[in-house]
């Protein structure tokens, strides 16, 4: 993998993103024109130009809060990934675990975040821990399912072949089941990372010292929808960047798919 490869891929990505970019620009234009013509007040619906201007003036505060959100997202997601991986391996070797644990996890996915977030903050305070827990709550199970299903998708002939070569359970896992799960893993990763940002912001909204969530709450209470929207744009940009990172990681880790 060299620089030329990466820049070629980037160029391809840009070309594919062009239609989406055009439609986003058109929406923003339409919005701007509507605010201009209707004369709606800026405290109800600020124009994109105003959002951009106010956001730029508040850039230092926004950056500081975005960094806090990014920290919460990444640490929560890292914890979630590590747990999902360890447990997926355990489940693959001890199928009984799956039947014991999956119902519990399914129930955990039915909990409404709005109700849970304030409780978790109440129990664990305004620090990093409640954010990690909430991000993990949202992303852990999808990642676990992606991995476990991925192992199951291993070609039976490949398993049989490895067995005939004298491979034990561990080698079969390492040489066949784990690589077979990669596409599933990355599909899960791309989706989960976007949920992770939303979960982090939710956790901050329920109570935090810093973060885009608390920034949004304060801006709303001060009747500053322009700043609310500026923070929303920052969080979208953050999500898109993480999504792109996940795509890049997939691209880098599966060289056979780009040859």
């Amino acid at each position: 993998m060299d620089i030329a490869d990466v820049s070629r891929a980037a160029a391809r990505g840009l070309k594919r993103a062009a239609p989406a970019l055009v439609s986003v620009i058109l929406i923003l234009l339409g919005w701007e024109v509507y605010v201009d013509l209707s004369g709606i007040s800026a405290t109800a619906l600020p124009a994109p130009s105003r959002v951009a201007e106010q956001g730029w003036q508040a850039r230092a505060v926004l950056a500081e809060n975005a960094l806090a959100t990014l920290t919460a997202t990444l640490s929560g997601f890292a914890v979630s990934l590590a747990c999902a991986f360890v447990l997926s391996v355990a489940i693959d070797f001890v199928p009984l675990l799956r039947r014991a644990l999956f119902p519990v996890f399914v129930i955990s996915q039915t909990l409404p975040l709005v109700a849970i977030a304030p409780l978790v903050v109440l129990w664990f305070g305004f620090g990093l821990l409640p954010k990690i827990l909430l991000v993990a709550l949202v992303t852990f199970f999808p990642m676990l399912v992606a991995l476990v299903d991925g192992y199951e998708a291993t070609d039976r002939d490949i398993t049989r072949l490895l067995r005939s070569m004298g491979a034990g359970r561990g080698q079969v896992f390492w040489r066949a089941r784990l690589p077979s799960a990669l596409p599933f893993f990355f599909a899960g990763l791309r989706i989960s990372i976007t949920y992770a940002v939303v979960a982090a912001i939710f956790a901050e909204y329920a109570g935090a010292a810093r973060g885009l969530g608390i920034f949004i709450l304060n801006a709303k209470n001060n009747f500053r929808p322009d700043l609310v929207l500026a923070a929303v744009f920052v969080s979208s940009a953050l999500t898109l960047a993480l999504f792109a990172l996940a795509v890049l990681a997939q691209y880098m880790s599966q060289p056979w798919r780009r040859a």
Binding site: D157, I158, R160, R175, W256
Partner: peptide, 26 residues
């Protein structure tokens, strides 16, 4: 030494590493 009905080459291994698979397992 077994050759399955479909070739069962591992898509994530280069040709030479597919051929050498049995030796690596050993």
């Amino acid at each position: 030494a077994f050759m399955p009905q479909r070739d069962a080459l591992m898509p994530w291994r280069r040709v030479i590493d597919n051929i050498a698979l049995g030796l690596e397992v050993q």
